[in-house]
């Protein structure tokens, strides 16, 4: 049985039949063709699949699509439409806070969620919040530089 599902993704209402135990990650990537959200460990240990649900960072690999309900979902593809998301994206680009780019969507989405929840957060708060997002290329150095810029008080 594949019950029907309504999702609000990046401001667009989507609907379709989705099996009850399908992960949000798979619905986004393979039914909605939103492959910016990356599949990593599928066990909540790498953060590559992070999306915002109701503005809060969530692991789409450990979320059933049917659990989301009416809550708006923001994926990396929708980040530019969000003022905080746009600032995070611009900073990551300016600092080249990425190398292979595979973990990057998870980082920019998680950081956007952290900044939305904690406006004016300190660098420590942001770094601490990112401990669930793994990067194997950058040594986190350029990411740290981006975080420093984003945590600076806005003039």
């Amino acid at each position: 049985m594949t019950p029907s599902l309504h999702l609000l993704v990046n401001g667009v209402r989507r609907e379709g039949a989705v099996p009850p135990t399908e992960r949000l990650l798979d619905t986004l990537r393979w039914r909605l063709n939103l492959r910016g959200t990356k599949e990593g460990c599928r066990s909540g240990a790498c953060g590559a699949c992070t999306v915002l649900i109701d503005g809060r960072p969530r692991l789409s690999c450990l979320t059933l699509s049917h659990q989301v309900g009416e809550a708006p979902i923001l994926t990396v593809e929708g980040l530019e439409s969000d003022p905080v998301g746009r600032a995070v994206l611009e900073t990551f680009v300016a600092e080249a806070a990425l190398q292979c780019g595979y973990c990057t969507p998870g980082f920019v989405v998680a950081l956007t969620g952290l900044l939305k929840e904690h406006p004016g957060a300190t660098e420590t708060t942001l770094l601490e919040g990112l401990q669930g997002n793994l990067c194997r290329c950058t040594g986190y150095s350029s990411i740290r530089r981006a975080v420093t810029r984003l945590s600076e008080p806005k003039r």
Partner: peptide, 15 residues
């Protein structure tokens, strides 16, 4: 810009 692929990678737009 430091890297020409940065914008597309940050937006998850590469395959």
């Amino acid at each position: 810009m430091i890297r020409s692929d940065a914008r597309l990678k940050a937006r998850g737009a590469l395959e």
